[in-house]
Each structure stands twice: as C-alpha cells, then as structure tokens.
C-alpha cells in the first residue's frame, strides 16, 4: 500500500500534486476536464483587497517552450471572492488553499485575518512575488519585509501559511530563511521569472505591461535549481513550482527536495494534466521502490 500523503508544517495533503494559483481560475472553469477529488489541492487565483481591472492587453505572449504573462492580478476583490467563489470552492473534495496579495504589509494582515475566519480552507498562500504589479517585487526581494508579513499573518490567521517567493533575487536562501524563521509552514518556489518580448518589426515590446513573468517548461531547470538550493540550506518544507508538465518533472522536484509540487502553465496547454500526473505517481514511486512520497522528498541530497 503506497502512501501519497505529504505533510508540510501544519498542512497535510492527500498527495503532492497541487494546481498553482493563477493557472486554474477559481476551479469552476475546470470542472469538466479535471477530477478534483484526485488532486492534492487547488490554489485559486490571487485575490486582492480591492477589485483590480488588471493590466491592458496583450497580457500573454508565447515564447520558446514557455510564455510571458502580465495579467496584473485581475480579480474582483476579497469580498467578492468570499461571497461568490469560496462557497463553491469549499464544496470541492480536495484541499483548497486561498492565495492573497496585499499592496502593503497591513493589507496582507487584514486579508489574512478575514480569510482565516472562513471555514473550509486548508491553508493560505501569500503571493509575495507577483512581478506584474507595482510593489509586488518590492516585498519579495526584502527578507526583513517577508519576515514581518509572514509573522504578522501567522499572528492573525489560524491556517497553515505558505509563502510564495520570487526567483528574481540575487540569493533566494536568505528570503526563504526569513519566511521559515517567521513561521511559514512552507515556501512555494518559485513564481515567474521577469522577462520581455519584443516585436522588432513594430519596434516595441509586445506586452501591454512591457515586461511579464516567464513560465512553462522553459523555466523548469531554473526553478529546480532554486528548490535544490533552498532544500540544501533552509529547514522548511518546499512546494516546487515552475514548468512542471510531466511525471518526470514531478519526480525531479520531489527528489530535489520539494514535499509537494504545483502544476501551473501546463494547465493552460494540457487542461487535464494534473489528474494524469496523480495517476502516474504510483508507477514512478515503484521505480524508486518507495512506499511513501516522504521517502522520495530530498532523496538527491
């Protein structure tokens, strides 16, 4: 009997395959293509305190084996999320992890307190790393600020806390360490890499926001290396995210030190991929003669 469950701090998941925030809408959209009961969890799109229209289009552009996005946290605000999306989400037979982004440390804390009062959630992921809104990357690159936000959020919200970090820093280790020291149950590594696409014929950038976040298979080795680095240097559970689209990718992240993974951009180009990866997990574990996912995590170290 194989044991697929994983434990990340106070967060316990039935299996290590989650779907990433911003790549699965509010789940409702995917009801026909994905058997939610199979997933380790769902992280719906980031919500902010007030409604945001988001960035002007074009918002995404395909690049070689990847895509740039600059959506700009288009959402209807936390009150709408709680009134219209959460009632559906909490009925789903899988762990639901809300994801929030504040413009200030205070906003993170206020929203976390509000989310923390809602039943039916398994955890709270803090989007400390959106590259496409002003202020987003300021938090993400400041270890002291990350520490403060995570600690303050923990003080007001009873849910397991996951800090989603940016790769757009010189050294991610002290940032992850700060999140761990402040009491984060886990860190999600990583958000997108800032990039740009240019239409040289028109002599201008393609995206309405000029820059965007790179995701997809193109970034997998970069994300994998950051998971490896944090696993080696910081004592904190890791959720690996970045370009995962095959069972080999999943296993590489687990072996590199991630306790769970998030499927992101692959949901866009292969909508039923997440459940297929869950189905493929047993055979991959058997190849390593592993009975528990936990036995695979960090096996490369």
């Amino acid at each position: 009997m194989l044991d697929f469950s994983v434990t990340l701090g106070r967060l316990r998941l039935a299996n290590p395959i989650l779907v990433a925030s911003g790549t699965f809408g509010y789940a409702r959209e995917m009801a026909g293509a994905v058997d939610f009961a199979k997933l380790g969890g769902i992280i719906p799109k980031t919500v902010t305190k007030s409604p945001r229209a988001g960035n002007p289009p074009p918002r995404t552009v395909e690049t070689t084996s990847g895509m740039l996005n600059a959506i700009g946290l288009d959402n209807d605000g936390i009150d709408h999320f709680i009134a219209h999306h959460l009632p559906y989400l909490r009925t789903l037979p899988t762990a639901i992890i809300a994801n929030i982004a504040g413009k200030t440390a205070d906003e993170f804390v206020t929203m976390a307190a509000q989310i923390g009062r809602e039943p039916g959630l398994a955890g709270l992921e803090l989007n400390l790393s959106c590259p496409n809104v002003s202020g987003g990357l300021d938090f993400a690159t400041d270890a002291a600020m990350i520490h403060k936000i995570v600690a303050d959020v923990r003080a007001v919200c009873p849910l397991p806390i996951i800090a989603k970090l940016t790769p757009n820093v010189t050294n991610i280790v002290p940032i992850a360490q700060a999140a761990a020291d402040a009491g984060a149950d886990a860190v999600s590594l990583v958000n997108t890499f800032v990039g740009i696409a240019i239409d040289w014929r028109k002599r201008k950038p393609i995206l309405g926001n000029i820059t965007g976040g790179l995701s997809g298979p193109a970034i997998k080795p970069l994300a994998l290396r950051l998971v490896w680095l944090v696993a080696k240097n910081v004592k904190v559970p890791i959720i690996g995210v970045g370009g995962i689209s095959t069972i080999d990718d999943v296993m590489e992240f687990l072996v590199a030190g991630a306790s769970a993974v998030q499927i992101g951009t692959a949901n866009f180009f292969d909508p039923s991929v997440s459940t297929r990866l869950v189905d493929q997990l047993p055979d991959a574990m058997k190849m390593l003669h592993a009975h528990r996912v936990a036995d695979v995590v960090g096996a490369a170290h």
């Binding site: 959209e29 293509a33 229209a53 074009p58 288009d74």
Partner: peptide, 30 residues
C-alpha cells in the same frame, strides 16, 4: 483575442466591456 488557455483560467484574452459603473475586462473565451 490572443488566448493562452481558451477555458477561462489564464485571464489573457480580455476585452473591455461596459458595466453599470464604467467598464471592466471580460474574458473573451468564457
């Protein structure tokens, strides 16, 4: 409009649509 997913989860394909209090981006796909 340029779409990444076609199913409503990526929020790429938006177009501005009039609303009672101004306008908002709506997803062309959904």
């Amino acid at each position: 409009t340029p779409m990444a997913c076609g199913v409503g989860i990526c929020f790429s394909c938006v177009t501005p649509v009039k609303t009672p209090d101004g306008w908002d981006y709506k997803r062309v796909c959904i």
